[in-house]
Simulated assay, not measured.
Amino acid sequence: MKLLLLIPSLGSGGAERQLVTLAVLFKRKGLDVEFLIYRKDFFYLNILEKNNIKVNILNPKNYFDRVIKVRRFIQGNNYDIIISFLEISAFLSCISSVGKKKWKLITTELSSKKSTFEGLRGKFFGWFRRYSDYIVCNSFNAMNMWEKYYPEYHDKYKVIYNPVILNEISTEYSFKKNGKINLVIAASYQYLKNPIGLINSVALMNDDLRNNIEIHWYGRKEVKTGDTKAYDEACELIKTLKLNNTIFLHEATHEIADKMNEADVVGLFSQLEGLPNAICEAMLIGKPIIMTRVSDYHALVSDNGFLCDWDDIDSIRKALEEVASLTKAQQLFLGENSKVKAEKLFSTESIVDQWLDLL
């Protein structure tokens, strides 16, 4: 079975990490797997090279040229199945499937954004999804949104959670490293991920509790090439509110599993999410979770962490103060609950079997 995975780039985002993980799992099952990308960002390239997975790179001159080159590439090769990740790639794979096609096309929904469905752009892209054989959502929240806007595609919808493969962990965990609760966040610096809301919430914390917590955020600074607006504003706000000893902003790292293993708690404060990879990984490592009510939060967090509302800084403050008040016994109890929950939800064997059934 010859399989093509289409995504804009191999950058450090969650969608890229998820597709690379799937590629490795498919390869281990004996599938012939290739990537097609059209943007030069190679954060995860080394993983694919280690697993002998071919990466095809296009260099389109403009948007129209990108459509032509992707369509020619797909139609000029004998693939049995194409899986596309992210909105533009889904459109490109669908428009490449107009007319006669021999391949099965699977597009995905990873973000659950209303903009995916509303406005001229969303409706235009949504219309082309009819050329998908299946639309795989990585959360029930995402599927429910598709059902709401496109009930006519009902028979195409499937929900498959993200598989989680952890990189080898080389760090050791100790409670309250440096004498403070260590909270780690793995997310790109964009307003959707809510760094500004988090910083303003920390400023409202009880002084003693704020002094009992360190927050380390790891992520890509550029949302698009040259666009670091959210990161720059976050840095400036940290200085203005004098939170330099509480919140630390870092670049994305390949060692994020090590960073989460060292942490007491792992967090996510987004406005919207599909199924958040970082939270899934943190749960499997055995960490308590603090997150906003996004995605399938009801399945992810119950007796293993804390929930808050992304647009209510007082709600985030209260949850952060609970995190800062954790005892060692509480941290271990919540972390063990996370691990048990993750092993049920994100078993790679179960999830790969679901994908193989679909393929």
Rank of each mutant, 00 (worst) to 15 (best):
Y134H: 12
Y149A: 03
D133G: 08
S132A: 01
K158Q: 07
I135Q: 01
R121D: 12
D133E: 09
Y131G: 01
Y150T: 08
D133M: 04
N138G: 01
R130H: 14
F140N: 03
N141P: 12
D155R: 10
I135R: 04
W146G: 01
R130V: 15
N141V: 13
M143Q: 14
N138E: 02
G122Q: 03
H154W: 14
Y150H: 11
K156I: 09
R130S: 12
W146S: 05
S132H: 00
S132T: 04
K158G: 02
W127Q: 13
N141Y: 14
R129W: 08
K158S: 04
D133K: 05
Y150A: 09
V136P: 12
Y153D: 06
G122K: 00
F125Y: 13
D133T: 14
G122P: 02
W127I: 10
W146R: 07
G122R: 01
E152S: 13
A142F: 05
R130Q: 13
F128L: 05
N144L: 08
M145S: 11
N138K: 00
G126A: 15
W127R: 12
Y134P: 04
R129K: 07
K123M: 14
Y157S: 11
N144Q: 14
S139A: 08
V136S: 10
W146Y: 09
Y134A: 06
K156S: 05
N141W: 14
F140Q: 02
S132F: 00
D133I: 06
Y157L: 03
K156L: 02
N141K: 15
S139K: 09
S139Y: 06
E152N: 11
E152Y: 09
P151M: 04
Y149D: 03
F128C: 01
Y134L: 02
N144P: 04
M145Q: 12
M143D: 11
K123W: 11
R129N: 08
C137G: 00
D133V: 11
M145R: 14
F140I: 03
K158I: 07
K148C: 06
K158D: 01
Y153F: 09
E152W: 06
A142Y: 01
W146T: 05
F125A: 13
M143L: 11
G122D: 11
K123E: 06
D155N: 13
S132K: 02
P151E: 01
R129M: 07
M145K: 13
K148Q: 12
E147H: 12
N138Q: 01
M143A: 10
Y157C: 07
F140C: 02
R130Y: 15
